[in-house]
Design a binder for these strands. Sequence first.
DNA 1: ATGATGCGCGAGTTTACCTCA
DNA 2: GCTGAGGTAAACTCGCGCATC
Length: 305
Amino acid sequence: MVEKEDLGLSLSLSFPQNKSKNNNNNTHSLQLNPLPSSASSTSPSGFTATFQKPSWNEPFPSSDPNSESFRAETTRSFLRGIDVNRLPSHGDMEEEAGVSSPNSTISSVSGKRSEREATNGEEHDLDRDCSRGISDEEDGDTSRKKLRLSKDQSTILEDSFKEHNTLNPKQKLALAKQLGLRPRQVEVWFQNRRARTKLKQTEVDCEFLKRCCENLTEENRRLQKEVQELRALKLSPQFYMQMTPPTTLTMCPSCERVAVPPSSSSSAPSSTVDPRSHHHQMPPAHHRPIPINPWAPFDARRPRS
DNA sequence: ATGATGCGCGAGTTTACCTCA
DNA sequence: GCTGAGGTAAACTCGCGCATC
């Protein structure tokens, strides 16, 4: 099995998807960067980030010439040919001219709801039998044969998917003809491929949010600690006069707010005020609560002045 | 404007096939 | 060599949105 990193993820986080028809260009190119130092993140409802993974919109492991599955696949394809489920060659494409016509091919019977709803009882059983690959050509075989795409077929499909992750009917027909597959098979492949893409995207999103959560937890922990320190200082002024201030903190003499030296501001930006300049640069507004976007990296959460 | 219809898609499921212990 | 578990991907089912009539 191939590790996730080997898939080379470069995925989108644009939600929701545009469901317009023939949206061949709805590649939501967007990269994740779970590192808090990145300033290119926004909210998860449409955030952008850069994730240090290679582009994953690549052929899946079955296309990897080095993979075991690929070798086995190649062997199978060599033994069986690439058209295990292919209809008899004569006129199969003409038969498909009606794009996914549910009665046109063996596995296309599963087509649309209206037609599904029109079938019930015995007709439905017949549908299912047909969708399982039973046909006049396949006598006695009650199990549907699953097509395993050859390397060449997978490569072509992947290349096509890179260009556009959806197909219009013409593209579907052309691709099916090129691959020697039924248009329905091409359609199914693209549907499954989009589903896999989304699944990987979800995994990346999940990982990103997990890291965000970890970072926020850590920051919260640190800030709580600082609050405790400050409370202790306030309660014991003598001790405060003798001890050196916390390494990352200084106190604004006029407003008694905590300030962080510029050198460490990147690690604790959200609660800091520079005592040397804030009274001039940030008038009274700095006392107001600062809206923080918890999804953005820390230094991106600072409100812009 | 409204309902019927066809189509494509997403989400979830089923199933055949494969690998591995 | 056989077997069962688990993974993968092709194929399927269902429901929904949109375009067209």
